[in-house]
């Protein structure tokens, strides 16, 4: 062979890259400022509580099974709503992207409804479905649906005619076309939509626990309890927990994405 057989390495999974230690500078500076302000007595420590108190409440909360039950409920709510919204979003986006008829029939309504802030759905949802689990799940699903449908739509639109020719030459059936060409080709944009959907779903999960509060279980309810008892420490612990869980979910998603899209050319 005259050609030198070469094989470029696969890119290292993005999620395994380490965090630059400089990223910790800002949070640490804020923490120091917080500590200084409260320790120096420059602020009303009933409103801006000292970090030490938060730590104490955090330790107590983490030892409380009710907290963990709340975490479990919130994550389950998030996962259930996300799964339903993601499936619906991929289906809707595929239909809009692949069928001109679907785009003409549904597209304008979809793009109009998208303009309505998600939280504006809540009064309607609670009137129809009450303040129970179903309302919350539908709300989370709806929040996931939009970004996933948009990502999928973009991805499906990006399928090239050259690849469609290949599918015709090898006589792909309708389902082969969908599962062996359209969805894999759209996968990078679908992944972007799913990542965004995951963020929205978590925001919506906590939001629904706030706004459809029925003193049920969930991280949002813990914060509400904190506010009702004027327990600022508990509010902050709840917020930190929400942030930590959201970040963990996104890191897991980034790993899954890197694994699923390892066929992509590494960014140059």
């Amino acid at each position: 062979m005259n050609e030198t057989p070469t094989r470029a390495p696969l890119r290292p999974a993005a999620a395994t890259r380490r965090i630059d230690p400089r990223a910790f500078a800002l949070p640490l500076a804020l923490l120091a400022l917080w500590w200084l302000l409260t320790a120096g007595g420059w602020v009303d420590t009933r409103l801006i509580v000292p970090p030490g108190n938060v730590l104490r409440v955090a330790a107590r909360t983490l030892g409380d099974p009710v907290f963990w039950q709340g975490v479990l409920f919130s994550v389950a709510r998030d996962a259930g709503g996300f799964a339903a919204g993601a499936l619906g979003g991929v289906a809707l986006g595929s239909a809009l992207g692949a069928s001109r008829l679907a785009e003409r029939l549904i597209g304008p309504s979809f793009h109009t409804l998208r303009q309505i802030s998600l939280f504006a759905w809540l009064p309607l949802l609670s009137s129809w479905l009450g303040y129970g689990e179903l309302s919350k799940l539908v709300f989370v699903a709806l929040s996931t649906l939009y970004p996933v449908a948009l990502g999928t739509f973009e991805g499906v639109r990006g399928v090239t005619l050259e690849h469609l020719d290949v599918a015709r030459v090898y006589r792909f059936s309708r389902s082969q076309l969908l599962f062996r060409l359209i969805l894999p080709a759209a996968a990078p944009q679908i992944a972007t939509g799913l990542t965004l959907g995951l963020v929205y779903a978590w925001v919506a999960t906590i939001g629904s626990e706030f706004l459809l509060a029925n003193w049920g279980n969930g991280l949002g309810n813990i914060i509400i309890k904190g506010r009702a008892a004027f327990n600022v420490e508990l509010i902050i612990v709840g917020m930190l927990a929400i942030g930590a869980i959201g970040t963990s979910l996104n890191r897991i998603a980034a790993r899954v994405e890197a694994r699923a899209l390892r066929w992509q050319r590494p960014p140059t």
Partner: peptide, 29 residues
């Protein structure tokens, strides 16, 4: 038809499939 094969100017491989998976597309149906 599978009786007629074609090679285009661009390779038109599916980037998400490996070499053997891409070739297997030819015998899929």
């Amino acid at each position: 038809s599978l009786d007629r094969g074609i090679v285009f100017q661009e390779h038109r491989l599916f980037p998400w499939l490996t070499v053997e998976q891409n070739i297997a597309v030819g015998v899929l149906n």
